[in-house]
Amino acid sequence: MAILESIKSLTELREKLKAKQAALSQKDNPQSTIQVKVTMATCGIASGSRPVYDFMKEELSKRNIPALVSQVGCMGFCYAEPTIEVTMPGKSPVIFGFVNTKKADEIIERFIRKGEVIDGVIPMNYETA
């Protein structure tokens, strides 16, 4: 990363990154993709999110489903760890709880591939600043 030399260069970088991020979620944008976020804070990792993260990363690419898998901090749903958030382009994010590799497989095959409604969804109950 290059050194930011002024508030202007920071603002420009931010706009660039914002646009890139927005494009990821737009339905008809060629840049858009499926986004998978796996909670990887201490609590998530302790309850087994690392294998889920690895599984998602490997299996999505093996099964030829283009997706961006990333690690994030705690979403606050300790009771349901490991949790993952899946965002299909043009749709609202969906959070799944109690995800193990078996559940992850079901999420890939049924939710991501076929768009079916499956169990284990945690209602989103907050707004962010």
Partner: peptide, 17 residues
């Protein structure tokens, strides 16, 4: 309602990026 200010980015961004 929950409003997340202090936790605004927790679970949203990759903390290592």
């Amino acid at each position: 309602r929950q409003i997340r200010i202090a936790l605004r980015n927790c679970g949203v961004i990759d903390p290592e990026r």
